[in-house]
């Protein structure tokens, strides 16, 4: 019996390591305190557990989430202790289509421009950079793109008044210092 080449290669690849799922991580949103990074499999898989990480100044917090695009998503800390109350307010429940649609729902339901984190960059570094950029006066949306960029300098140069909460020149200088110091 002949086996199609692609299937044969898949069979060869199966084995002790076959349970490993290739993933990619996305910087979804955040603020000065915490940054949400969601991890998704490259290829849809039925037994995938919804996973995410909330990066704070104290380090990573593993999260899981349940819900659907119509009604929104509920988020839980995986270890359950010391409690869900420690999640930032914007993450305890994220809105779905029937509610005011939020940034996280836009990401999970496929409407937002995704910010995929390169394999070359550690999520911790991306999260720290994002928090620092927001603290420097950038609004979350340009900060998201600059935080994941391998070279954020052209993006910082191009920032406009609408992208910052204070003085544009000062925000640019602070942002340059953040991306250069690495």
């Amino acid at each position: 019996m002949r086996i199609a080449a692609f299937c044969a290669l898949a069979l060869l690849a199966a084995g002790p390591g076959a349970a490993h799922v290739e993933t990619r991580s996305f910087l979804v949103t955040g603020d000065e305190e915490a940054v949400l990074i969601v991890t998704l499999p490259w290829v849809a898989t039925v037994d995938w557990e919804n996973r995410a990480t909330l990066w704070t100044a104290e380090g990573p917090v593993a999260l899981t989430y349940e819900g659907e695009c119509d009604l929104g998503f509920d988020w839980r800390r995986m270890e359950r202790e010391p409690g869900d109350a420690l999640l930032p307010p914007w993450l305890r429940h994220t809105a779905g289509w029937y509610e005011q649609h939020g940034h996280v729902g836009d990401f999970l339901c496929g409407n937002a421009r995704p910010a995929m984190i390169s394999r070359r960059m550690h999520p911790r570094r991306v999260a720290e950079r994002f928090r620092a950029l927001v603290a420097a006066g950038l609004r979350p949306e340009p900060a998201r793109g600059i935080a994941i960029a391998s070279d954020g300098a052209p993006l910082v140069d191009a920032l406009t008044e609408a992208d910052v909460s204070g003085a544009l020149d000062e925000a640019r200088e602070r942002a340059r210092a953040i991306i250069v110091q690495e």
């Binding site: 191009a158 920032l159 406009t160």
Partner: peptide, 18 residues
Amino acid sequence: AFVSIEETLVDSGVWPLS
């Protein structure tokens, strides 16, 4: 020559070039 696409900058009609 490189062009960067970033959501808010595209919305503002600004294009970073390198």
